[in-house]
Design a protein around this nucleic acid. Structure first.
Length: 457
RNA sequence: GCAGAUGUGGUUUAAUGGUAGAACAUAACCUUGCCAAGGUUAGAACGGGAGUUCGAUUCUCCUCAUCUGCUCCA
């Protein structure tokens, strides 16, 4: 049973230290969220899980960590400088927003091209041709304005020495510009993959949905370079591999679906999302794109560097195709939180809130309780020192034992260990499983192996 | 970015143009021997700014944030 609304989740995350509003003491900055102690653990565990599946367990798979700030030519080559800002205007009457270039091409009498028009020329054109809002018939429009989706900053310390530099809107270009470096240094062959986890920035006008859409966010990206033709099978493979990854994280099959793109971007020959059913509707977690040789070809053109691969068996030369699969980190965190939350009514009628996170994702693997603070806290602290060398452990000696169990249930801790007189006399502890509510007696020596086996991913 | 609604301790809330009250949560001490027990005590709030007023959490304006619906998301 779960009836977790977004509002309730936001409060829960704040209360227990998963996620806080960004810049909260100054009134908040819209669409930014800070990860607290528990949220940071959860997020890092998700990233580690991804790393394990995509880098560690796959041959010819390499991780990079490239810079947020890149040469401006990168974004010209990628097409972002030309395509990642839109000319838009609003109908003041019915508040509909249009893309000016599309509007002119679609609704003008001659279907003129707006390709080469400046913004004020588009404004003039719309006015001079008495174009009307297709929705309400009004001609009361705002001027055409530019909506830049890339954040800009400046390089250079003096006013007259400044050059524009962009904050990356995707990680992918970092892998593409290092394709030759990785290929050479790793002595690898096609097909091979470069993965990367990194922060990207998009200056979008957005409604929030909590951490679902933010202006700064992390992506886990996976680029597979292959021989042209092999991209078709790889594309299919990575769609399924991505879904498998989400099932492994504990998301339920009936809340996951594929959504093929009908309209393809200029760089892609195929595109498909994996969506999760959030309380606010289906939302994208992953996008897999067949980017063909678009990016490497463009970088070859713009940089002058030869991006061709030589197949040593056939001596063929070609620019590799790229299949990209991108996973949103924050969105995955959000999906895992929604999926994990349960409310259970106990025999005495009280409600127990349980965060049934996969043990690998749980912020703490084990909580240690001295049954009686006075008698058992020394031994409990000793155990903390032993176990904390192996995994994240938390310690709680305040309030009643029942209350301590409940606190761990809400934050997803899979195992609780209680130290009592038996521990002092026989070296055994009571370990309680969050999901089954069953208690077992365990020798202290066996705890590490017991837990490690349970939390494996 | 547009329209509407909302903003009181961590959370849920009460009242008020004149000292802002509670419950839960939190912390300390006592008690307690395995699932939110009890007692005592403590800390903690009117989103921010300006205006009207002798005095504003309350009225007005601006702003910030959140929610709902649009819009946007190569």
């Amino acid at each position: 049973m779960s009836n977790l609304t977004m509002e309730k989740l936001v409060n829960l995350c704040k209360q227990y230290g998963f996620i806080f509003q960004g810049s909260e003491i100054y009134g908040g900055l819209a669409n930014t969220w800070d990860y607290g102690p528990l949220g940071t653990r959860l997020k890092n565990n998700i990233k580690d899980a991804w790393r394990k599946r995509f880098i560690q367990e796959r041959k010819n798979s390499f991780e990079t960590d490239t810079t947020i700030l890149m040469h401006s030519r990168v974004w010209e080559a990628s097409g972002h400088v030309d395509s990642f800002n839109d000319p838009k205007f609003d109908c003041k009457n019915c508040k509909t927003r249009y893309r000016a270039d599309n509007f002119i091409e679609e609704y003008s009498l001659n279907h003129d091209s707006a390709q080469n028009m400046a913004f004020d020329e588009m404004t003039e054109y719309i006015k001079n041709n008495s174009m009307k809002c297709p929705k309400c018939g009004s001609s009361n429009f705002t001027d055409v304005r530019e909506f830049k989706l890339m954040f800009e900053t400046y390089r250079g310390t003096t006013e007259d020495n400044k050059t524009v530099i962009y904050l990356r809107p995707e990680n992918a270009q970092g892998e593409y510009v290092n394709y030759l470096n990785v290929l050479r240094s790793s002595r690898t062959k096609l097909p091979f993959s470069i993965g990367q986890i990194g922060t990207v920035f998009r200056n979008e006008v957005t409604p929030g949905d909590f951490i679902f859409r933010t202006i700064e966010f992390e992506q886990m990206e996976y680029q597979t370079f292959c021989k042209p033709g092999d991209d078709v099978e790889l594309y299919k493979y990575f769609k399924e591999y991505g879904k498998k990854f989400y099932l492994d994280l504990g998301l339920s099959n009936d809340k996951l679906r594929f959504k093929d793109h009908e309209k393809l971007s200029f760089y892609a020959s195929a595109a498909c999302d994996i969506e999760y059913l959030f309380p606010f509707g289906w939302g994208e977690l992953n996008g897999t794109h067949d980017r063909t040789d678009y990016d490497l070809k463009r970088h070859q053109e713009f940089s002058g560097q030869n991006m061709e691969y030589i197949d040593s068996n056939t001596n063929e030369k070609f620019i590799p195709y790229v299949v990209e699969s991108t996973y949103g980190v924050g969105r995955t965190v959000l999906a895992c939180l929604f999926e994990a939350y349960h409310e259970e009514t106990l025999e005495d009628g009280t409600i127990r809130e349980v965060m049934r996170l996969h043990p690998y994702l749980a912020p703490y693997k084990v909580a240690i309780f001295p049954l009686i603070k006075k008698n058992h806290s020394d031994k409990a602290n000793e155990l903390f020192d032993i176990l904390s060398k192996h995994f994240m452990v938390t310690y709680d000696e305040s309030s009643s034992i029942g209350k301590r169990y409940r606190r761990q249930d809400v934050i997803g801790t899979p195992y609780c260990i209680t130290i009592d007189d038996n521990t002092l006399n026989n070296n055994t502890v009571t370990i309680r499983d969050r999901d089954t509510m069953k208690q077992e007696v365990l020798d202290i020596e066996d705890i590490v192996d017991y837990i490690n086996e349970k939390i494996a991913f």
